[in-house]
Amino acid sequence: MDRKVALAICFVFGVVMFIQYFSGSSLARQVNQSILEYWQIVFAFTLVVGIVGVVRTNVQRINKRDDVFFRIVTLAGIIIMPVVALIWGIKADTPFMWMFENIQAPMQATVFALLAFFVASASFRGFRARSVQATVLLVSASIILLSRSALGGILADEIPQFAEWMRNYPSMSARRAILIGIGLGSITTSLRVILGIERTWLGGRR
């Protein structure tokens, strides 16, 4: 029964949002605006679900003596940041922002910077001339790498030009083909959801 209600709501809102997209009337715009406002309100409540989940899982794992230090740090972050935000606010030049700019941001930048190291190790391992196709990939990657560095233009003007050609034609057509496939996949998946053929998003197939 509850699943039928959810499916009916999904169908009605799917159809309403589809129809209103094609209408330029103020009624359609009002409907659109109201649904979007409710969407944002519902989203805010879902964060509570997430926070409760994080706290519960970490407390349970601390009781089981499982990665205690990491879990205490997580819980401390969950408690300290909102408390500081509630007391002093979250605008510029508040303790919350100080913590954001001097603790959270550098930590995140560090994780992002790992990408450079992983690109290096993946290139070292992955770009091997094992076959003709792999060699084409290897040569194209080398040309693009050169073109994005200052040296590409210094060695020869043709390197950045050729790299642009590769990005704009062979690479672009392949990506467009993949994008079209993805777009069609998204359309059919959305239709399956609206029509109730696809029900996994409700928590199962039944």
């Binding site: 070292f124 770009f127 091997r128 990657a141 080398s142």
Partner: peptide, 13 residues
């Protein structure tokens, strides 16, 4: 860094 990666690719091959 790009040139270093290029060098790695050559060494790898």
């Amino acid at each position: 860094a790009h040139l270093y990666i290029l060098l790695l690719v050559i060494i790898g091959n």
